[in-house]
Design a protein around this nucleic acid. Structure first.
Length: 588
DNA sequence: GCCGTTTTCGGCCCGACTGTTTTCAGTCG
């Protein structure tokens, strides 16, 4: 193959762009929506969609049909999509950019183009300043003013439309502060609940959604402006209020009468795609779901629901957990009765990835072990970095031997929990490890992971990972894709091949609970489990406080549809030990 | 352009807000 395969990100971007172009061209909205849905599906895919398309299997992905599969093949073989080239010749790139401005969409961009020859941010600004925009039929002075305001907005380029997303713990913390402050100001009996992507426990969040029930809606909505977390409020009434935190995160507060609490909570929890799909299911059953109730076609009666369960029941479905509401097959599973019983934090019986001040952690073995015991764990692995970590405080082989003794001593002193002597060993670029086998064989728990040389290319990285996975003494691979949420993309690696090797060898793959990582991701962990891989959820704690990160790993596991049975560290230590490769080998 | 407990054709959520309108179109979530 002469040409490098387009990445999933590149394919998704091409579909988003093609959607924008078709929208400018006046295509029916469903076609445009189909492109955007396909872009999202490709972006979430864990394997090379270009590779799938070449084999004719991209249509297995929901949202990709024969036409889009052909376009992916075109993109892979020629570097472009003919339809996109044709449309790009028709509409200048600046025009597409205009459709991303707030308040402007395809229709108005096209109108400005046809009437005034506007084809860029610059020419739009000039037309608005010359008061030509207000003269266009259908537009007016208010719209023109708004345009100038939008174009003047510092500091970001208004055309990039990329509001910073906040990782989940930060978003959750602010949401809880705002909700708590609202509760304090609300009359007795009021309720303030967190909805939206925070409730779905997404990797990151772009706005905060709150649902309140109260007897004094005007008063509650007005009180949002008075909160110390809130910078400004753009609207407030009995239906709710919208504001901006000092960190620039939009907050939407919606208020319902108590009997409609379930309808509004369901609506505002989303996701948008889940709600749209749920409402389609309901329509087929002759019902119409909105945030106000469920309208029955046959009787003309709208039923309100105090609880979300009731909304789903009226759609003919069992309750669906918030973490599953991403339109990733949950409605089908609900109908078929195959929704998983999701793992919870309470199912976790041990943590198998942690650091002490022997490497880059901040507490002693004893402090970490005691804190783990206080969390109710039965076992806890100390896995400091190996010799070639490269970020200081590397543990030499001699130091690791000493560490094994220290863990054994701490185990005596702490009591009530089994401390395991382990290591997080570097996977070198050729797939080898940086301790010798004799030393590794003495450890209770061997974690291997990549910390250097991320950009060696997909083939080399895949071979590197598989070599480590096939190592008989490696129990688990930590943070298998190296991603950092909102900061660093996963390194190029063939996850299908990694999952196959892990399943074949009985090597466990981690969901790392560090909220910047959550690696494997939800969709990758789901694919891994489907491939027969057993998952471990860890905190990767570097101090006592971050043992708490286990919860973000569990959140990702829930979004990955995982049950307790698919996660190794929900088992007793005796059962966990039987899972280890070396035990399986002995058992034959 | 996708998809199938009605379907290989004919559908494809629901409502708020804004600004332009005189009954609605466009945009947004």
């Amino acid at each position: 193959m002469a040409q490098r395969e387009p990445s999933n990100g590149q394919i998704a971007a091409a579909f988003d762009e093609l959607g924008d172009l078709y929208e400018l061209d006046g295509a029916i909205v469903h076609r445009v929506v189909a492109y955007r849905a396909a872009a999202k599906a490709v972006r979430e895919a864990t394997v090379s969609v270009a590779g799938l398309a070449r084999q004719g299997r991209a249509t297995d992905i929901k949202g990709i049909g024969k036409t889009l599969q052909e376009k992916i093949v075109d993109l892979a073989e020629t570097g472009t999509i003919p339809a996109a080239e044709r449309l790009k010749a028709k509409y200048p790139p600046g025009l597409v950019e205009l459709t991303h401005l707030p308040g402007l969409g395809a229709k108005r961009a096209r109108l400005l183009h046809d009437e005034l020859g506007v084809d860029s941010v610059e020419s739009l600004r000039a037309a608005a300043l010359a008061q030509q925009v207000r003269a266009v039929k259908g537009l007016g002075p208010k719209f023109e003013e708004r345009i100038l305001q939008v174009l003047a907005e510092p500091p970001e380029d208004p055309a990039t439309r990329s509001p910073a997303r906040v990782i989940l713990p930060r978003a959750k913390e602010i949401a809880e502060e705002v909700a708590g402050a609202l509760r304090e100001r609300a009359p007795a009996g009021s309720e303030v609940l967190i909805a939206g992507s925070v409730r779905r426990q997404a990797d990151s969040v772009k706005d905060l959604d709150l649902v309140a029930t109260t007897t004094a809606p005007d008063q509650l909505a007005a009180s949002l402006a008075a909160l110390e977390q809130i910078d400004s409020v753009s609207s407030a009434g009995e239906a709710g209020a919208r504001g901006l935190t000092h960190a620039g995160i939009p907050v939407e507060l919606r208020i319902a009468a108590p009997p409609q609490r379930g309808n509004l909570l369901q609506h505002l929890t989303g996701s948008g795609a889940h709600n749209a799909a749920l409402r389609e299911v309901a329509v087929r059953a002759g019902r119409h779901i909105s945030e106000y109730g469920v309208l029955d076609d046959a009787t003309g009666v709208t039923t309100t629901c105090a609880e979300e369960q009731e909304v789903y029941r009226l759609a003919g479905l069992p309750y669906i957990e918030p973490e599953l509401r991403e339109d990733r097959g949950e409605l089908q599973a609900a109908r078929d009765g195959t929704l998983p019983k999701l793992i919870t934090l309470a199912d976790i019986r041990g943590d198998l990835h942690s650091h002490t001040h022997a490497s880059d952690g901040h507490n002693t073995i004893e402090e970490m072990g005691t804190a783990a015991r206080e969390r109710g764990y039965q076992y806890f692995a100390i896995t400091d970095h190996s010799a070639s970590h490269g970020f200081g405080n590397a543990v030499s082989p001699e130091q690791l031997e000493r560490q094994i003794e220290l863990v054994a001593e701490a185990n005596e002193r702490v009591g009530g929990i089994e401390l395991l002597a382990g290591s997080e060993v570097n996977i070198l670029p050729d797939g080898s490890l940086d301790y010798d086998d004799e030393l590794l064989a003495r450890l209770d728990w061997v974690v291997a992971s990549v910390h250097t040389s991320f950009a060696i290319g997909e083939r080399a990285m895949t071979e590197r990972m598989i070599t480590a996975i096939e190592h008989p003494l490696v129990d688990m691979i930590a943070h298998p894709t190296g991603r950092l949420i909102e900061r660093r993309a996963p390194y190029a690696v063939d996850l299908d091949a990694v999952f196959e090797a892990a399943a074949r060898t009985g090597t466990l793959l981690e969901i790392n609970g560090n909220p910047d990582r959550r690696d494997l991701s939800d969709s990758a962990a789901r694919a891994a489990a489907a491939a027969g891989v057993t998952i471990v959820i860890d905190s990767d704690a570097h101090r006592v406080r971050t043992l708490e990160n286990m919860r973000w790993g569990v959140a990702t596991a829930r979004r990955a549809w995982l049950t307790a049975g698919q996660v190794a560290n929900t088992r007793s230590l005796a059962q966990l030990r039987k899972l280890r490769k070396r035990a399986r080998r002995r058992a034959g």
